[in-house]
Amino acid sequence: MSIFGNKEKEQNSSEEKFTFPHASEDQVNQSTLAQDIQIHGSVEAKDYINFDGSITGTIKAKTVNLGRSSYVKGSVTADQITVEGEVDGDIQGKDVYIKSSAKIKGTIRYSNIDIQDGSIINADLTIS
């Protein structure tokens, strides 16, 4: 460990922070987690997560899109959140879009919200 550490420090003494090799500022990273994925824990991304699986835990990103087959037990935090699936827990976002197929139980904290006909919501809403 220490040997590698020293080498890196010698090579990139000016760069202290680790950056992903392909991440440039104008590039938007998109991650898709498909229907058959099950997560116990947390998922975090800098940009965009397209989530269709089920998770017990937390999702954090700039933009989170919860697809029709998604199930979240826990919390979702993002600037922009679109919910098409099921959420049991806390949603926190600046822009929250709830689609007709969504089922939500828990709390929603938002700055702007848009709710479509047909969604089933049992939640406490607060404006942040």
Binding site: I113, D114, I120, N122, L125, I127
Partner: peptide, 19 residues
């Protein structure tokens, strides 16, 4: 029973679906 909220509306409190 069926709810539509337009973007920009302010809603605070409890929302409950009648099921």
């Amino acid at each position: 029973t069926s709810l539509k909220v337009s973007y920009g509306a302010r809603v605070q409190g409890r929302i409950q679906h009648k099921g």
